[in-house]
């Protein structure tokens, strides 16, 4: 992965406002993951459309942990160091389900407008 120059590039988009939490919650629902893993998973799942830089990822992770949506586990990772793995809490799961439903309604609504226009 090489650092790309700033500015809008072909194939890369800004993460829509208010959806970062939904994306993070969805990613850690599958399995507990460390910060780097979350960033990588987001990138690979979107085929590089969404890329999050650590300066935005970590504030979001810490805020979500503070609000009780995520919980941290210290684990010994593959390279034999202690790493913090983020995982969903019960309250995070509830929030995820709520956000998913909301997002489905938003996309459905937008889609029906686009089709009807």
């Amino acid at each position: 992965m090489t650092r790309q120059p700033k500015g809008p590039l072909e194939g890369k988009l800004n993460i829509p406002q208010g959806t970062l939490e939904l994306l993070i919650l969805t990613i850690v629902r599958r399995e507990p993951l460390h910060g780097y893993g979350i960033a990588q998973r987001l990138k690979s799942l979107t085929q590089g459309t969404f890329e999050i830089n650590p300066g935005s990822l970590f504030p979001a992770l810490y805020a979500m942990e503070r609000d009780g949506k995520l919980r941290c586990e210290e684990r010994l990772s593959d390279n034999n160091r202690q790493a913090r793995y983020y995982t969903l809490t019960a309250s995070g799961r509830t929030q995820l389900e709520r956000e998913e439903r909301r997002w489905e309604r938003v996309t459905a609504a937008i889609a029906s407008v686009l089709q009807g226009a």
Partner: peptide, 15 residues
């Protein structure tokens, strides 16, 4: 926690 998170990030990214 922050130290550990960021060090881990750099480590993995560098690897």
């Amino acid at each position: 926690a922050l130290d550990s998170d960021l060090a881990d990030y750099i480590e993995r990214s560098a690897a």
